[in-house]
Design a protein around this nucleic acid. Structure first.
Length: 232
DNA sequence: CTGTGATCATTA
DNA sequence: TAATGATCACAG
């Protein structure tokens, strides 16, 4: 099969097929190679460049830049997630999904939740992210376009409902990352001093750390292994 | 400050 | 040593 050389996208993909084509063209390339093409520097460490990998791939796939609270490819209904894995395809990190609203949740249903919207269709791009490999030498893996199956959808729904219920009841501060089987709630802020409004235990307004929804590693591992036919 | 992209680093 | 809670950079 003919392999086109990857290049920085000048426009968003016009179809899912085109998006997948672009992703396919990146397979096997190292970050050093891609960074050279995109004319950006490879950080020696991701310590001060935590989102670098995801943003590098966005350049090649043509994702609309910015920090809008919507999918990366709104016209295609696709969300992009780069996920560092080891040789066993085990995710090395949890996956950030979206900010968790702490107010105005009355009447919000799973069907209309941001979590469901973001996860309705995801283009997963695994990265060989082994820590012992220099960032420049890490490579892009096989892309996987995923939609939650019935069981996964219900699992996510149960977690979301449990967590959301706790938020509504003013228990945000007692929710730990242990709650939920696939989805978890964790801090998502510039630092521990950032504050946002939420409900207190008596329904009174309080200020608390902003939270975000994340996918636990094991859930993501199952997606990748089933989707890529790697067995379990 | 909120939301995007996430990984770091301390602790259990 | 894995997971939780904390943090980094940047756009708007």
């Amino acid at each position: 099969m003919l392999q086109s050389f990857p290049k920085v996208a000048q426009n968003p993909p016009s179809s899912v097929a085109e998006l997948l084509e672009r992703a396919q063209d990146l397979v096997g390339f190292s970050f050093a190679e891609l960074a050279a093409i995109a004319q950006v520097q490879v950080p020696s460490s991701l310590r001060n460049a935590k989102g670098w990998t995801g943003q590098l791939l966005e350049l090649f796939l043509g994702a609309s830049a910015g920090s809008k609270a919507e999918q990366d490819f709104p016209e295609l209904g696709v969300e992009l997630k780069t996920i560092p894995v080891n040789l066993a395809a085990m995710p090395l990190e949890t996956t950030y999904v979206c900010i968790a609203p702490l107010l105005g949740l009355n009447g919000v249903s799973w069907e209309h939740s941001n979590v469901r919207n973001k996860l309705s269709q995801v283009l997963w791009i695994p990265i060989d992210g082994r820590r012992e490999i220099p960032v420049a030498e890490r490579t892009v893996g096989l892309p996987l376009l995923w939609q939650p199956n019935e069981a996964q959808e219900q699992q996510l729904r149960r977690d979301w409902e449990e967590i959301t219920e706790a938020i509504i009841l003013g228990q945000v501060e007692s929710i730990t990352a242990r709650m939920g089987s696939a989805l978890q709630l964790r801090p998502k802020a510039a630092n521990s001093k950032a504050l946002t409004a939420a409900y207190g235990a008596s329904g009174e307004p309080i200020q608390t750390l902003p939270r975000g929804f994340y996918l636990k590693k094991e859930f993501t591992r199952t997606i990748l292994c089933e989707g890529l036919g790697l067995g379990k």
